[in-house]
Design a protein around this nucleic acid. Structure first.
Lengths: 218, 218
DNA sequence: CGTCACCTCACCAAAATAGGTGATGCGACA
DNA sequence: TGTCGCATCACCTATTTTGGTGAGGTGACG
């Protein structure tokens, strides 16, 4: 099967680096000749005027550009070309930047230490729905995910009923609604609530909810 | 520089697959002959009796084992060998499993479709503090991270004061405490709170806190 | 068998909240 | 200039929440 060449656009302010990125987009690697831009604005206006069939499948995006931060243009990019896969190409390897880029919608994240071959492979991988990352980035991403999903050190010993009640508290129900939902009297829910407060070390429903959500008790 | 060979242990119940994993640990790849186990229990008891200098640097762990789920042994493993990097090796590629494994402390996650060379590289990468992942896994991890960090679609138009108040609500403060903190009268906080409820479409502080935390309004 | 944790229900009082109305002053915007 | 959003303060009442005490029944555990 003769797959069509992948359309790649490049945004990179450094002249020499931009040219070498452009050079690595060769038909032998499955890539069409790339359009390259020195800044985000010109790329976006190019995108606005481009007919649908010329829009890129993969965007190689340097962040750290003068002017706009590079990350906030990702949402514009997503608007103009929803199908386009975005691969960040940058010198920044801090978790904050990486996290911002990914939550903005980037699929890949390469450090500029990557060699030409790696960049070309990343473009192919991205175009196939993958998420190419430099090893250091992969490490950060896994770290971030671990941080965000790890449960509390000691999940606090709640009785089943208390856990149930806590879940309903988090839904914002009143004592009466909770009583109905659990088919018990309002006095019972009240008792449970107070016991729950003691265990959680709080003095209000709001604080209990905050604790529950923050420590993933629900 | 003559780097010492990396100590690898393997847990894999399939005999043939276990042997082929063992076979790929060769000095030419920088790997010491691996100890292999057919189940997690024997690996853990082996770990308990092993002297510190023989403990593995990288553990190749099959999840989907009979008996224990494979994921809950990661915490035990972490206890016994905190320095050991854990690489999951499995057929499961659903986001739930991946997320669980990573939050339990796995550094790498390979699908069993990986070739021997890829596994060997992954071991090296893991031992150097990296996070080797199969492409599909990388995709899932990025998706997960995007899901967890993306802000609400339309963050609801709150006035600055209301945002401030919401943050204090989330801390579980009472109206009076909030009034003190903001240096206004309790009546003012009360008014703000009511307006806030209207905007958030809730009828209780608990629900407001739940909404705020869930939609990352704070 | 005693004890303990859990779930259930009840009564009580002080405190806080929910929800409404109204009023003032300020700055922005057309 | 008028209007509007915002922040501020006030008064009102009904309802809810908080916090205490007590108490009956269950099942598990030693």
């Amino acid at each position: 099967m003769n797959t069509p060449l992948i359309r790649v656009w490049i945004v990179e302010d450094h002249d020499t680096f931009r040219r070498s990125l452009q050079r690595l987009c060769t038909p032998s690697r499955g890539l069409a000749p790339a359009r390259a831009f020195a800044n985000a604005e010109s790329m976006l206006s190019g995108l606005r005027t481009a007919p649908e069939e010329e829009k890129p499948e993969v965007m190689l995006l340097d962040v750290g550009l003068p002017g706009r931060s590079g990350l906030d243009i990702i949402s514009d990019l997503h608007q103009l070309a929803p199908e386009c896969r975005i691969v960040i190409l940058t010198v920044f390897e801090d978790e904050a930047k990486i996290s911002q880029a990914i939550s903005a919608g980037a699929s890949g994240y390469l450090l500029k230490t990557a060699r030409a071959e790696e960049v070309a492979e990343a473009i192919l991988e991205a175009s196939q729905g993958g998420s190419p990352m430099s090893p250091k980035v992969a490490r950060s991403v896994v770290n971030l995910l671990a941080k965000l999903t790890k449960p509390a050190a000691q999940p606090i010993a709640l009785s089943p009923r208390e856990r149930e009640l806590l879940a309903l508290l988090v839904e914002g129900l009143t004592a009466k609604e909770i009583a109905d939902r659990l088919s018990v009297s309002i006095h019972t829910t009240s008792t449970h609530t107070r016991n729950l407060f003691t265990k959680l070390g709080v003095h209000s429903r709001a604080a209990a909810v905050a604790r529950a959500l923050r420590e993933r008790l629900v």
